[in-house]
Design a protein around this nucleic acid. Sequence first.
DNA 1: GATGAACTATGATAACGATAAAAGAAATAG
DNA 2: CTATTTCTTTTATCGTTATCATAGTTCATC
Lengths: 339, 339
Amino acid sequence: MITIKEIADELGISTTTVNNVIHGKTKEVSKATIEKVEKMIAKYEYVPNMNARNLAQNRSKIIAVAMKARKDKYENAIKDSYVGELIGAIEKSVRTSEYFLMIYISDDIGEILKNVSTWNVDGLILLGMSGDDSVMIKKKFKKPMVFVDSYFCQDVMGYYNVGLEDAKGTYEATKYLLECGHRKIAFLADNCVGVDHERFIGYKRALQEYGIGCREEDFFVMMPAENEIEACLDELYHYSEQYTALCCASDYYAVMVMNYLSDRGKIIPDDISVVGFDDNASATIVRPALTTIHQDVTKKGEVAVEKLLKMVNGEELEEENMILPVKLVVRDSVKKMNQ
Amino acid sequence: MITIKEIADELGISTTTVNNVIHGKTKEVSKATIEKVEKMIAKYEYVPNMNARNLAQNRSKIIAVAMKARKDKYENAIKDSYVGELIGAIEKSVRTSEYFLMIYISDDIGEILKNVSTWNVDGLILLGMSGDDSVMIKKKFKKPMVFVDSYFCQDVMGYYNVGLEDAKGTYEATKYLLECGHRKIAFLADNCVGVDHERFIGYKRALQEYGIGCREEDFFVMMPAENEIEACLDELYHYSEQYTALCCASDYYAVMVMNYLSDRGKIIPDDISVVGFDDNASATIVRPALTTIHQDVTKKGEVAVEKLLKMVNGEELEEENMILPVKLVVRDSVKKMNQ
DNA sequence: GATGAACTATGATAACGATAAAAGAAATAG
DNA sequence: CTATTTCTTTTATCGTTATCATAGTTCATC
């Protein structure tokens, strides 16, 4: 690992000159010197020491993706198909820039902020934040950041947000079920905040538009907490006579419930229809193939990185948010009752 | 972002003393001073500047996972279920240590090495390396590293390797097919080196043990190159009368081919039986559920990180390699011909 | 052809924040 | 009153960058 100083000494010139060559300041250095230095650089395979460079420049060339995750549930967060796909898309976009990616997953926002600060990261991408957490982050992190899949109250607005037409997605999905003649439609989500809550709203709106679901009893909402998924699926099976269709806030749940029910003798979609959300790999793997709401995860990651890097480079962003479109993809998991 | 110097100045003491407190050298500092300094640290939420610390200590606290990937194919490498799961497991293990993870994915080993060097990473986990690449890496990277899923020639041995009973896996899978009465068994893999080659060997050995497969014509081997997967599946479909079972080097292919064939009218497993390898999420999602070879990906990641960190901390490793066991998991994708 | 402005090419030096080695005080012990 | 322990400071260093300074040229201008 040769250093600038060593190159300078060997050539009997100053570090400033070597440094100028490294930074392509050709106007300041004579052609002869440039050549000499470049030969040295090639010969000894000089690479800059990032720690030194970052220290001197008070930056880090690091972009971080941070995600809050319950310790028990997201032990291996990236394993989750959607999270993996999104982080993968972010990784890919960062990879093609001159920046490097660090991943911080923790159930403790304080810890995430500490890491961000200790590494002096240049920009931050936050996944699935809501309310309190984003208030704290906004207070403590003063550099560019982009929120992805985050919903929070008005007072923390003003940051760039990459999101999805979440409510529209479940609205379309539920409407499709209704159009197919379904009237008893259950809803299955992970929790009652953020993206899931938004998706619940869409489901609710579609029902209300059809004149049902004005009363609480019309909803059959499941929100599995940690380790309660099995119990939840069991309950869903137990009450499966009470609905003909199931609207899920993710393909993850949709596929899980499909297999759970069909392994217990229910025919999908004849006994129970299912729609998902995300359109991830499992949607096309499962049989019947899952009717679901498609979102472009790759695009989401790309947009997040692109906007963040713009901000990092001091550019002004035109818009404040990017809401990506969703689209219903009809496959085979919904029965048409009216045909 | 307060610094040690600022704390020292505000308290009218030296940076060394502050630094000693930060490093818990309680023997060198009086209780009174410790208390003063700790109060400051808490008040201003001091966090060390990693760039400065690493520069001074000539290390980085960074562990890198590096993976060579064809640009076209692994655009989003982490999206791949197995890779995602493995990187996720590594991320989790690194997260619980005092180190940080950086991910380098490139089709160019030189670029990976440049990144490793510029960041002065303390340890390196290499995924799926073979032959030439590992020679180059060994020559240029002089710090601790662990190879995962890598097969290479004798002269680059001597590094810690976390692997799998790959050959045994396909051997067991193929033997199971043979025991079920199958005699015409095709093999499907990604390429002909590394893990896939090893898995091919196991398949071959089982066949030969049954007195078949001594002639080349007995093999029906597919190795899809980039973008040729569709053509490959088509060929597989076209010749599907010639075999009764298919041994796949990954669940990824197994599930893909199952759906491809069944969407074209083939009944799995009655017309064609399929076994996979990995036992990832899709194996239980697909119907019929996939009979496959199970491997413990989480364990693999954990072992890789654990061994690497031991080396980074200067400990000697007892063994040179860790070959994790595999296990046949029988589900519903294989027909018993003899019953 | 002297004067100085404008370049060109280079060097000296002080940061950046943390650490480590060595040395200096102060307090306690024998 | 020296010897040892406890506490603290001085100073150099890590590799890179940025500011400022210094020669040496070129060239237009009076």
